[in-house]
């Protein structure tokens, strides 16, 4: 499982960073972040790329999810 932290990054950096890992062939990615917008956008990207979402933490200021093929 590859880990990536997108905390505090403005649009569309979280999506770009996660997509880069996907494009490199990662099948399992653990993502942590802070804003609700980045959570929505990373989730949307994951679904569109055929990944399954597993939300580990869904706090007000912090979230973590695992994406697996």
């Amino acid at each position: 499982m590859e880990k990536i932290d997108v905390s505090g990054l403005s649009c569309p950096m979280p999506v770009i960073k996660v997509k880069k890992l996907m494009d490199q062939g990662s099948q399992a990615i653990s993502v942590t972040g802070t804003s609700q917008v980045s959570k929505e956008n990373v989730s949307k990207l994951a679904v569109s790329k055929g990944f399954k979402l597993n939300i580990i933490r869904d706090g007000k200021d912090e979230w973590e999810m695992e994406l697996t093929k």
């Binding site: 505090g8 403005s10 950096m13 802070t34």
Partner: peptide, 13 residues
């Protein structure tokens, strides 16, 4: 530029 790795850095809560 974004594809080239442009990033103004992290914001902190």
């Amino acid at each position: 530029f974004l594809r080239k790795g442009f990033n103004l850095g992290k914001a902190e809560n």
